[in-house]
Structure formats: structure tokens, C-alpha cells
Design a protein around this nucleic acid. Structure first.
Lengths: 376, 376
DNA sequence: CGGATCATGAGGTACGTAAATCATCAATTC
DNA sequence: GAATTGATGATTTACGTACCTCATGATCCG
């Protein structure tokens, strides 16, 4: 057998199955190649130090002189050594435990979908030693959310992603949680000046602006009134969308009058009569911006009124209902955020924090815009 | 020291740093927890077989009776055993080698960006034993592309991602490459009935349809002529976009007349006079759909004509130029594909093939739509 | 000058899976 | 009944990093 110390230089030693015959795995292409990598031994040899010293340098442990550190660093650069992520993860037998705190997703299909994506991620990441649990709380209920957050200990979990309502008590609960050493990211909707690491979600101002722009342009100069429907302005994301919407509307489409926002609590049954009322009250209603869930209520009210062709509607989140409405022409555009991306980004941010990476910046979550012609 | 065989049951043994004091790493949160995982030993014990047999079952090796297989499978399910991805990767000291074949990206900023993303991915994935090399070929030159493809051996690389022109000789070259056991995905633009594993790119028909829909709706009923500008119809993606565009235009906006497509070879200098000519020739030109690169030529021609406000323009790919045009109002919408996503998906698809995973379906690449109000 | 601290070396074990080798024992085949 | 084949066990080595312990010489400090 060839021992580590006897092995030739890393660059040349590339070998395949010695006998040349395919190993195992029925019929598969079997692509990969066995390779001798550059290891810390090579670095140690190059720098003229021991393995222990290389290890100390690589892991920023103390007890190494500045001169030696730079010798090792130089060797690392010279050999283009990269620590093997697999070996490193194996050696530090750690597990990352995260908690996703979401509102109970009874009637809200966006939240239900988000919850599904969290589950899916949990399954996918199990083999990478990431354990994800989910905890629900009563929708819009900040006291219940605080109860959940206060019950989280740093022992049971090192990171929390939360879809939060934006209230002072929730802010406080998040801050104390962070104080206990738990990393927190807000998901979808932010909690303003809190000590959370990041907010993982779309830029909601931007979403609101696009909605305004699309409604304005689709109306092509027609004047009239615009209705705005939110789930609840306790949700920071809805408030943000409204802000962006109003801003662009005021600047670019002064001929359109924005009606006061109505709150449907993300519930179709509650939303429907509200929208029906608006339609009846304002014969010159030409557009609707739906910021939250409860789209089915809007669709039903519109279609009952028979004015679905005359009213331009931009809504949020692609679901079975909004998709149907888009195809039918009741909705004109749907602004969407991909739940899977948000979950993935949240996990990455929490993991970066748990691993002590400073200055990790999660990638932005993209805003999807769907019209009838680009439905997936 | 505790030996493997002496260890207690997996469920209970959770331990932290015995002394209770923080180890190493300056100031970091140090989240992760040491955990005793369920291993193949546990599975072996549960199933009453040896490690070797468990290994045979897990890796689909032969030499195990059906009864034993199901006993092992049952134990795996019962204990919820998941093979540790890190340990597995470490044990099979393999390296994945992929090749990205892109056109030389002299003047085309989309391709230049794609190339940058490939480089970035190569850096990111180096610690995961994925080695990515890049090879350029002369833009639009199928002979040169074939030369490159023909020179690839299964030894040096097990997967190729190629931004290809759609010609019979290229198709042939791809097919023989696949015949040699190399996995091939087409990137951005497809090569039609070839034996490539997948095409990693946006749905270009869909992109064309959206472009038509946006131009039509932004024009709000105005009639007139629409210009279509492609890089070259040798590129399958441009051809596809045009197809989708024409289809939706014909069906939904019959008042708009589509002019014959012009080909600017993805080059601003070549495109500019062509567009200027169209503008001069057609005073009733109301819209432009730009399918390829060379947007700068379009912008310059439009702004020189002074008609940039009257002509609705939808273009592809967000670059410095198209972004400026969007902000200035010269462009009305930009359809974008995120190069980073495409590279990532391509690598995943190639890796899945190299690992012999059958039926891997790469996630779709999303179409980004930008207007002035949602620029990132 | 004796003890303390620092820089480094030497050598190990652990992590969990892959995969190879060799040895059994039983069933099947001729 | 001997030879072959199949199923299984037992045992090892390798993968590359993390991290611990102990030893050693040097330097520093009062």
C-alpha cells in the first residue's frame, strides 16, 4: 500500500479504476475521477512547519508567530490549497438546528405553501446536518408570537426564521432572543428597528411601485379610482407595498385617485363583501391592487359584478386562484415571491451566523411578475 | 476513550464541550451542537446484519438476498437513517470535472457576464471537488464550436455545458460527445433534437409572448408597426422568442403589424444603422422588440431620432446600457435571465448525470421582468 | 536564576461512509 | 459427491480535517 508520505506530487497522481472495468451502480455513467488533492500535509511541507501549526493558522487559533503565519499563508496561496468542505464538516461533527416560526396557515395559501417549502427544505438538508423544526402561532396575534419566541432557548436552536407581525412587543421578543445568542431573520415581512440579522423577502416597496406602474400603464391614460386591498397593515410587508404603490401612483399617474386602503385580513370571505361594496359604490373604479392573500374574495366580487374586464387588477402571490384569474383575464398581473428561495436564503443566513461568518449578505429574493403569457 | 462499540444509543447521547468553556474562534456565536448521528452501524445492529451487508444494500451492490434487503431497508426507515453526505463524499474521493463552452464575449455583455458567473461558480465550488474549466469559441461560428466539442475527451471532463448555435454540425458534435459518455447540457440556447441532457435556460417562447403582451398592453390600443430585432436566428433562443412574440401578437393585438425581423449579430455597431433605417422608413413604428444583445445600437438610434417616448421598447438582458435606457424611459421593460442561476442549474444537472442519478429534473430558470420601478 | 509563558512539533483519535479482501457456510449443479 | 455459485460476516484501509494531549526548547520577567 502507498502511504501518505510516499505519495507522489499532487498534480500528477490521477488514477481510475486500476482494472479498467466499471464498478458497481447499474448502468450509470459513473463520471467522477479519483484525485489526489492538495492537503494540509502539502501545505505543512511547503511551509516547513508541522501539521499542528498549519491547523492553528487555518483555524485562527492562537500560538503562532506572525512570521510563521505568513509563511503558512504563502504556502496555502502557492499550492492553491482549499480546505475540503466535506472533510471539514465531517471532522466537526456538528449539527445546525433552526426553527421556523410561521403563522398557522389555515386559509392562507401563501403561508401554507411557505410551510410546505420549509418542510421540503428540512428533508433536503437533513443529510447536511441541518435540522429544521417548525412552530406555528396564531395569525396576526402578536401575544402568541411573543409566547413562542420567548420559549426558545439557545440550547435547542441556534437560529430562528420568523414571519412576524410588526408590533413593539414582537420587536422586544426578537431583541431578547438575539440577546440570548440566537440568530434571527425575519421572513417575508420585516420587523423594523430590531436586532434581526436580516430580512429575507422581496423588496416590498419595489413590488408596490411595479404594481402601480403596471396598473397605470395598462390603463393607458384612462382616469378613475383605484382600490387598494391589504391583509393587515400590522404586516410590515403590506404597509411597505402600499407605500411604494402610492408613491409611484402619485408621481406618474396623477389622473388616478387612490381610495383608502381596506384590510381583508388575508381572508377571502372577509375580503369579498368589502370589494363588492367598493365596486357598487364607485362606478368609476378602474383598478385594484391586492397586496395580501384573500384573492379569491376579490375574484368572486369582480366576476359577480361583471366588471372584471374593465378593472385592471394586480395581485400578489401566484396560487391556484390567482393563476385561474390570470388566465381568465380577471387579473392582469400577479407579483410573486418564490417561497422556496426565501426558505433557502433564510437557512443560509442562519447558518452563516451560526458558523460565525461575519458580514454574510444573503442574495436578494427576486420579484416574479406573471402575466397570462409567462405562467410557469 | 470511548470506542464505537461501547457507545450508548444514538437518541440520548448529545454532548457539548465537556469543560463547558468556549473553544477557539474569536468572538463568534458558535452555534452548532455536537451530536451522535444514526450511522450504518446502528442500521446493521437493528437489522441484525453486518456492516458489509448494509453497505451493499445502501449502494445497490449485488450479493444480498431480497429478504435481507428488505430487513435492512426496514431498519433504515425505522431509525430514520440518512447517509451523511459529507462522510460519503469524503469516502469516495472523487472530483467532478466540467467544461463550459461559451462564445468569445468580446462585445456582448450578456456573454461576458455569463463568463464571469462561470468563473465565480468555479471558485465557489472548488472546495466541493467540482472543477470547472472554460473554453471559448468564435461567436456564431459552428465550425469552431465543433472543433472544440470534438476535442473533448471523457477522461478530461465528464460534463459539458455549451451555449450553442443550432446547426446540424453542432448537433452532430453534441451527439457524438454524448456517445463518448460525456454529459451535455445546452445553456441559454438549445440545440433541438440532440441527445443533450437538458437545456438550461429560460422558456424563450414564453419570454417572447410576454414581450408581445407588454408591448401590446403598454400601447393601449394604439395601432402601428412593430420592429423585431434578433442577434441571429442561428441561435435557437432568438428564434424561439420571435415565435412566441409573433404568436401572441397575432392573437391578441391584430392592429399591430410586425415588420420582418432584422438580425444585428448581437452587435451594437451593426444594429444601430438597421434600426435607424427602420425608424426613418416607418413613421408609424410604435414598438420594438429586441431579442438579443446590441441594445446600445437600438438606444442610440432611438434617441437620435427623438422618438424614444413614442416607441414602446421591450428588450432582453439587464446590462448597464439597458438599465440606463429603462431609467431614461427609452426602454419600457427588460426581460432578463439571471446568469448565475443558469450556471448553478447547469452544474447541478451535470453533477446529477455524473453521479448516475436518473431522472434528475433541473429547476426552471425564471424569467425576470424589469420596469423602471423594480430595478435591483 | 527559577518559574512562567510562548511557539512549535509530534502524534494521536474521531468523524461516518466507501470499498476492498478474505473467509464461511449453504444451496445448487453436474 | 465434488465443484461452483451466492449470501453474508469480519476486518481493514482510506478520505482530509478538526482538535486534543504532551513534549521541548526559547524567551521573558521579576
Amino acid at each position: 500500500m502507498i502511504r501518505a508520505t510516499d505519495r507522489g506530487p499532487a498534480v500528477t497522481a490521477v488514477c481510475r479504476d486500476p482494472a479498467g472495468n466499471a464498478r458497481g451502480r447499474a448502468g450509470a455513467a459513473e463520471g467522477a475521477v479519483r484525485v489526489r488533492r492538495v492537503t494540509i500535509r502539502d501545505v505543512a511541507a511547503e511551509a516547513g512547519v508541522s501539521l499542528a501549526t498549519v491547523d492553528r493558522v487555518l483555524n485562527d487559533r492562537k500560538g503562532v508567530s506572525a512570521a510563521t503565519i505568513s509563511r503558512v499563508r504563502a504556502a496555502v496561496d502557492h499550492l492553491d490549497f482549499r480546505r475540503d468542505a466535506f472533510a471539514a464538516s465531517l471532522a466537526t461533527s456538528r449539527e445546525h438546528r433552526f426553527l421556523f416560526v410561521l403563522p398557522e396557515s389555515g386559509r392562507n395559501s401563501f403561508m401554507a405553501n411557505l410551510d410546505r417549502e420549509v418542510q421540503a427544505a428540512a428533508g433536503r438538508l437533513a443529510d447536511q446536518r441541518i435540522r429544521i423544526r417548525r412552530v406555528p402561532y396564531h395569525e396576526f396575534n402578536d401575544a402568541d408570537l411573543c409566547r413562542v419566541l420567548d420559549g426558545i432557548s439557545a440550547e435547542e436552536c441556534m437560529g430562528v426564521a420568523v414571519v412576524a407581525v410588526d408590533t413593539p412587543s414582537v420587536r422586544e421578543a426578537i431583541n431578547t432572543l438575539v440577546g440570548r445568542g440566537v440568530g434571527v431573520v425575519t421572513l417575508v415581512s420585516d420587523v423594523t428597528p430590531s436586532r434581526r440579522l436580516d430580512c429575507i423577502g422581496i423588496n416590498n416597496m419595489s413590488a408596490g411601485r411595479v404594481a402601480a406602474s403596471l396598473i397605470g400603464r395598462f390603463l393607458g391614460g384612462r382616469a378613475g379610482k383605484i382600490a387598494t386591498v391589504a391583509g393587515s397593515l400590522v404586516l410590515f410587508d403590506h404597509a411597505d407595498r402600499l407605500h411604494g404603490f402610492n408613491q409611484t401612483m402619485a408621481r406618474e399617474f396623477p389622473q388616478l385617485l387612490i381610495l383608502p386602503v381596506i384590510e381583508g385580513r388575508d381572508d377571502s370571505a372577509a375580503t369579498r363583501p368589502l370589494v363588492a361594496g367598493l365596486l357598487a359604490q364607485h362606478p368609476d373604479l378602474v383598478g385594484i391592487y391586492s397586496m395580501g392573500a384573500g384573492n379569491r374574495g376579490i375574484i368572486e366580487a369582480l366576476e359577480a359584478s361583471g366588471r372584471q374586464r374593465d378593472v385592471v387588477v394586480v395581485a400578489h402571490e401566484l396560487t391556484a386562484h390567482s393563476r385561474r384569474a390570470l388566465i381568465a383575464g380577471t387579473f392582469d398581473a400577479v407579483i410573486h415571491q418564490e417561497a422556496a428561495d426565501e426558505v433557502e436564503n433564510a437557512v443560509r443566513a442562519l447558518k452563516a451566523f451560526a458558523d460565525g461568518q461575519v458580514g454574510y449578505v444573503p442574495p436578494r429574493v427576486r420579484i416574479d411578475i406573471f402575466v397570462r403569457d409567462n405562467l410557469p
